[in-house]
Design a protein around this nucleic acid. Structure first.
Ligand SMILES: [Mn+2]
Ligand SMILES: [Mn+2]
Ligand SMILES: [Zn+2]
Ligand SMILES: [Zn+2]
Lengths: 156, 156
DNA sequence: CTTATTTCTGGAAATGATTTCCATTAAACA
DNA sequence: TGTTTAATGGAAATCATTTCCAGAAATAAG
């Protein structure tokens, strides 16, 4: 049963509170915006999507919050080469939905893919193990992007 | 035998000329700077390393040239999250020396590694095949980076 | 080699994403 | 409810990168 004031505590509240951060309307709004799409949003994209419902959340807060969420590991920050950073939740209420990217260098379109070959996950695990042993490096995350040309751009 | 005026034509002249670009002192200098290190240089790093020997090569030219080289596929442009783009030759006079990166999110240090490359390359080949078939996407290149914490930062 | 054509160049100014500042607001918690 | 302290937003600053444009240099033509 949801608590009296609107919706109950969210899946991410724990992690944010545990790290000493407060739950605020702006932060709710920003995570809500990221949750409700698979798009790769820039800070201004988030601002635009929030502004109607939360007109008093400023762009500065968005940058600050996204930065915080990246540090907490709740959000991943990407650079697809168009001059602005893009953000994506690393996990949702239902858990992680890790994926990799295909980036078209022609039109800058980005395709998410999660249909890893079985071996892909296995090799990554082995590689991470080998690397962290050899370089005494604790690996938390990885970024894998393939660059090339999408169907539409190939047609031209 | 080198031609009369200084050193002979470089390994990259062909590709540059074939694309209709001219060989200039600035371009020589920039590629020379990139060739002589394994560091991940920013545009200003390149400027700094060139400036003594070529005081009349401006920063604008460096940006322009790096951009051109990226388009030609001679240089790879990276974002390691410190606010400036970093550049690296994709190949040298002796050919490609492909590698991947370990990025420390603490101190921003970047480690090149070529270990496990054989396994990875094999897997990548299969992955790229699968992806390009499924998404009708022509893959030209890939970016693989592992993020985490380096030995020095772990010590703290 | 000389001249003509066209690209390339540097420096100043513009741009635009992100950060910094700081006075004000609002979570958290007793 | 009151106190403490983190969070906020809007304006201004920052700073990597781009844009402009008149002059310089590379290549093509003669
Ligand atoms: Mn994605
Ligand atoms: Mn490298
Ligand atoms: Zn495309
Ligand atoms: Zn480190």
């Amino acid at each position: 049963m949801p608590c009296r004031k609107g919706c109950g505590p969210q899946w991410w509240h724990g992690k944010v509170k545990d790290c000493g951060y407060r739950i605020t309307a702006g932060r709710e709004a920003i995570i809500e915006a990221l949750s409700s799409t698979h798009d790769h949003l820039s800070a201004e994209d988030v601002y635009a999507r929030i502004h109607d419902k939360y007109p008093n959340v400023g762009l500065t807060t968005i940058y600050r919050t996204l930065d915080m969420l990246v540090n907490l590991g709740l959000v991943f920050k990407f650079d697809f080469g168009d001059g602005k950073a893009r953000y994506e939740l690393t996990e949702g209420p239902k858990g992680a939905h890790h994926h990799h990217h295909l980036v078209c260098t022609g039109c800058k379109r980005v395709i998410d893919y999660t249909d890893f070959i079985d071996d892909e996950v296995e090799l990554l695990r082995r590689t991470e193990k080998g690397l962290s042993d050899k370089y005494r490096f604790r690996i938390d995350n990885h970024l894998i992007q393939f660059y090339g040309t999408c169907t539409e751009c190939l047609a031209k």
